[in-house]
């Protein structure tokens, strides 16, 4: 792997920082997030490795991983982190980056009243709207 200054300060890295509001440089790689994760055995890269790859600007590698989809967003990692890095939020940001890349939005504004009438929970509409729209 070639590390370059451009890679360290990549746009994608900045986007994840902007979405999550988290500072991945704060992580000192103790591995507590990975140790505490209840679903770690189903992941291809461990949670602390997600942060390490992000620190090095290897964001693509993270986005290709299964891990970000295996994450149950249980926030155990965030709760235990000694450096106050909310990895669960970073995971969500990674998912958002991918979802936002997808074309179009599955939800359109005009469809919403009908959906609501059909009994779709408001929370579902809000989260769907967020996920599928850029």
């Amino acid at each position: 792997m070639k590390i370059t200054t451009a890679q360290l300060n990549g746009e994608l890295k900045a986007e994840i920082a902007q979405i999550s509001g988290e500072h991945v440089a704060d992580c000192y790689q103790c591995g507590k997030c990975s140790a505490a994760c209840p679903v770690n055995e189903y992941m291809d890269i461990l949670p602390h490795q997600v942060l390490r790859l992000l620190q090095l600007g290897m964001t693509e590698k993270v986005l290709e991983s299964k891990t970000i989809w295996v994450c149950a967003a249980c926030f155990t990692c965030a709760g235990r982190c000694p450096r106050d890095v909310d990895l669960a939020v970073v995971m969500e940001a990674l998912r958002a980056v991918l979802l936002r890349k997808r074309e179009g939005s599955r939800l359109k504004g005009e469809e919403m009243p009908a959906l609501l009438r059909k009994g779709m929970p408001e929370q579902g509409i809000v989260s769907g709207f967020r996920k599928y729209t850029k």
């Binding site: 792997m1 590390i3 370059t4 490795q49 390490r52 790859l53 090095l56 290897m58």
Partner: peptide, 12 residues
């Protein structure tokens, strides 16, 4: 090498 990410590193 970065042993944390298991990546070899080449830098200029």
């Amino acid at each position: 090498v970065d042993t944390l990410s298991n990546q070899t590193v080449e830098l200029e």
